[in-house]
Design a protein around this nucleic acid. Structure first.
Length: 298
DNA sequence: ACGCTGCCAAGATCTTTTAT
DNA sequence: ATAAAAGATCTTGGCAGCGT
């Protein structure tokens, strides 16, 4: 018959553990910082609960019953396991860690966050692995909740409310075209800007209308958006091989020698990037280290 | 007010020492 | 070898502190 743990004071097991080691109530009491009678009462309760005398007074002190002998090792292991489980979390050791982290990122997040952070991660924690998975904004909250991803890189403004977040940087838009683009030798005016052929990134797919178009509309202007693509990096390839231009995040194009980057003639509001994670990971020392590492890298 | 826990004091039991 | 005395150890009963 199983002992109901609800009705069992686990402190009794601590006493039993010491009793099984000492075979002596007085010495057990000394070790436990209890009075001898208290331990005697504990033993009485244990006898009642387990239905076994456990320790019998005999010729050479208290002799353990067969049940007591059978109990000793498993009990010791169980208590040690509990002690380990309840021990204060030890600080994360990057050098010895072999975690695999799953991070959701768009190709923009890959370029501007994952890439800068990668070197530091490899150096500090060489036995860890990083899995970057496609960022699907609609699914981030669920993925985080189900533990499919540890971290997501996302714009702050439309990030799921129920996830923890930390701002990483603010981004602004610049106008980019190929390095020797004839119309970008000087910063174009609004009219020339609208006359150019534009590429737009539409992560949801298929859209031809973005923030830039809204700002233009307020000024009574429209531009010619001739290509819509879902990924940022493809835009760069397109710009390099055509006369198309695009309003792109500054961080994505700042080191692209093949591109010419100019300030746009109109003021397009930027956005803030943040990383998102689930409450469950919030206090985890490994996860905190990862977050700190990434925040420092960007 | 009640129940739980631990302590102290006293009683009970068993072991060891000492005397015969 | 046996019995009494002393010592060690466990159990029981009563009490106080504490939290519900």
């Amino acid at each position: 018959m199983l002992v109901n743990l609800r009705s069992l004071d686990l402190n009794l097991l601590v006493t039993l553990d010491v009793l099984l080691a000492e075979h002596n109530v007085t010495r057990a009491a000394l070790r436990l910082n209890f009075s001898q009678p208290s331990v005697s009462v504990h033993l009485a309760k244990l006898r009642e609960i387990l239905g076994d005398p456990l320790l019998l007074p005999g010729p050479r002190g208290m002799q353990p019953t067969a049940r007591a002998l059978a109990l000793r090792e498993p009990l010791r292991e169980a208590l040690e396991s509990l002690e380990r489980a309840l021990a204060p979390e030890r600080p994360f050791d990057p050098a010895g860690a072999s975690d695999t982290w799953r991070v959701a990122a768009s190709d923009y997040g890959e370029s501007t966050i994952a890439l800068p952070a990668l070197r530091g991660l490899r150096e500090a924690a060489p036995n860890t692995r990083l899995a970057v998975v496609e960022l699907a904004p609609a699914r981030v909250a669920k993925q985080a909740a189900q533990g499919e991803i540890d971290l997501a890189f996302h714009t702050t403004s439309d990030a799921p409310e129920n996830l923890r977040r930390r701002a990483l940087f603010t981004e602004r838009y610049v106008l980019a075209g190929r390095a020797d683009h004839p119309r970008l030798k000087r910063r174009p005016g609004a009219k020339q800007f609208c006359a150019l052929e534009h590429v737009i990134v539409s992560p949801d797919g298929g859209g031809f209308h973005g923030v830039t178009d809204e700002v233009l509309a307020q000024a009574g202007l429209t531009r010619r958006v001739v290509l819509s693509v879902p990924h940022f990096l493809f835009v760069i390839a397109v710009l390099e091989r055509s006369d198309l231009v695009a309003m792109l995040p500054w961080r994505l194009v700042r080191e692209k020698a093949a591109l010419r980057v100019v300030e746009p003639p109109i003021e397009v509001p930027g956005y803030e990037m943040c990383m998102l994670w689930h409450e469950r990971s919030h206090r985890d020392s490994a996860h905190r280290w990862l977050r700190e590492q990434i925040a420092r890298a960007v």
